[in-house]
Every structure is written in C-alpha cells, then in structure tokens.
Simulated scan of single mutants.
Amino acid sequence: MNAPLRKAWTQEEFFSWAERQEPRYEFDGFQPVAMTGGTINHDRITRKLNRSLDARLGNGPCEPLGPNAGVETAGRAVRYPDALVTCSKVEGEGYLVPGVVVVFEVISPSSSRIDRIVKLREYAAIPSIRRYVILESTTIALTVFERSGSDEMWRAAPLTKDDILRMPEIGIEIPVAEFYDGMTFPDDEVASA
C-alpha cells in the first residue's frame, strides 16, 4: 500500500500559518520546522551581538535586524538568523529582508549540524550575503565564512577572544570578546587552572 505524499507548503501558506503560532518556526522550503529554545548563554550572546551591531551601525545606510526578520534562502526556505544586516530598504510590514549582506547564528550543540551544514549551504546560495558568522554558545569562538574574490567561494576563518571581527562590507569591526563580556565557560576555567 502506498501512502500519499503530502503537498509542499508555499511561503505564503507558511507565513499565514506561522503568524498564529506560539513557538517560532522556520520554513525549509517544504514544511514548517520548529525552532528549539536556546540556553541562557545563547540569549546573552544574541543580545550582546544585537547591541554591538546597533551601536556601530546607528542610523547609517545599513540596518541590523533579528531575530524575527526572515531571510529567503535556497529553495524558497525561510530562515530567522539571530541577527542580520541589510543595506537595502526594508518595508515594515514585510516578512522577508531583501539584500541581506551579513548573517549571524548563535549555535548550541543541538543546532550545530543545521547551522554549520544546511544553513551554510543555503546562505552561500544567496549572492548578496557576503559573510556568515557563527558564534559559539559554549566557548568564546566564532567561525566566519566570507566570499573570497570573484570566484564567489566561501573562505572560513576561526576567531577567538583576542581577535577582531572585521566586516568591511558594512564598514564596522567588533572585538570578539565584546560578544562574551562577563561570561565564563567551563573550558575557560580549566584552561586557566
């Protein structure tokens, strides 16, 4: 006996449905996918990230948004990164942000595979995205993916607490330690003992 395949949702069906839901969802291009809750450290890092972006971008031509701003990725999937920056005009009633230049995801062990593999591929398929920054929530570290040269290939670079996150495409720099200010992690305590 064959089971009938369910018809894929459209973005419009997803947005209509999602605005009535209590937990948050992303859209994988086929169906809604529940977004899991994060740790307290995830929330702290996200808050510090958004403050840092706001402080540096101010009322300039680029605007930081997130985590409720949607990005259309490959296959018409819709992702809600922890933060993003666009230098395009954004309508206040829209669901999707056009011209996203930089995307930030704060990851935890449960979201690592999706953020490092699935979302990396999806964000790489969007020509306007020049930089994808993954912030760890269990240690002080970032992985930065940036487009290199005219071949549009991503280049990865790890950053730690003494490094500076440079983002020339939006004209700002942020010390990595700023995202983790006042936070301690078990690995940090072991390393200093």
Rank of each mutant, 00 (worst) to 15 (best):
residue 4 P to W: 10
residue 5 L to K: 15
residue 8 A to E: 14
residue 14 F to C: 08
residue 19 E to A: 13
residue 19 E to T: 12
residue 22 E to Q: 14
residue 24 R to G: 13
residue 32 P to G: 10
residue 33 V to D: 07
residue 33 V to Q: 13
residue 33 V to N: 09
residue 34 A to V: 14
residue 36 T to Y: 07
residue 36 T to P: 09
residue 38 G to N: 09
residue 38 G to R: 11
residue 39 T to W: 08
residue 40 I to P: 12
residue 44 R to C: 08
residue 45 I to R: 04
residue 45 I to K: 06
residue 52 S to Y: 02
residue 53 L to R: 01
residue 54 D to I: 05
residue 55 A to L: 11
residue 56 R to V: 05
residue 57 L to R: 02
residue 57 L to I: 01
residue 58 G to Y: 08
residue 58 G to M: 01
residue 58 G to D: 07
residue 59 N to R: 13
residue 60 G to L: 11
residue 61 P to N: 12
residue 61 P to A: 12
residue 63 E to R: 15
residue 67 P to C: 12
residue 67 P to W: 13
residue 78 V to R: 00
residue 78 V to P: 04
residue 79 R to L: 01
residue 79 R to I: 03
residue 81 P to D: 00
residue 82 D to R: 06
residue 86 T to K: 01
residue 87 C to G: 06
residue 87 C to R: 01
residue 87 C to E: 01
residue 88 S to T: 03
residue 89 K to G: 02
residue 91 E to R: 08
residue 96 L to D: 06
residue 97 V to M: 00
residue 97 V to W: 02
residue 103 V to L: 04
residue 105 E to R: 00
residue 117 I to T: 05
residue 119 K to V: 00
residue 119 K to Q: 05
residue 124 A to I: 09
residue 126 I to V: 14
residue 127 P to G: 11
residue 128 S to G: 06
residue 130 R to A: 04
residue 131 R to K: 10
residue 132 Y to D: 07
residue 134 I to K: 05
residue 139 T to N: 10
residue 139 T to M: 11
residue 143 T to D: 02
residue 146 E to D: 03
residue 147 R to D: 01
residue 147 R to A: 07
residue 148 S to P: 03
residue 148 S to A: 15
residue 148 S to C: 14
residue 148 S to T: 13
residue 149 G to C: 09
residue 155 R to H: 06
residue 155 R to W: 07
residue 156 A to C: 02
residue 158 P to K: 08
residue 158 P to E: 12
residue 159 L to Y: 03
residue 159 L to F: 01
residue 161 K to H: 11
residue 162 D to C: 05
residue 162 D to R: 13
residue 166 R to D: 10
residue 167 M to E: 04
residue 171 G to F: 10
residue 172 I to Y: 00
residue 172 I to W: 04
residue 173 E to N: 05
residue 175 P to W: 05
residue 176 V to P: 05
residue 179 F to Y: 05
residue 180 Y to G: 04
residue 182 G to Q: 11
residue 182 G to Y: 08
residue 183 M to L: 15
residue 183 M to F: 02
residue 184 T to P: 03
residue 184 T to D: 15
residue 185 F to V: 02
residue 186 P to W: 02
residue 187 D to S: 14
residue 189 E to P: 08
residue 189 E to K: 14
residue 189 E to Y: 09
residue 190 V to M: 11
residue 192 S to Q: 13
residue 192 S to I: 10
residue 193 A to F: 12
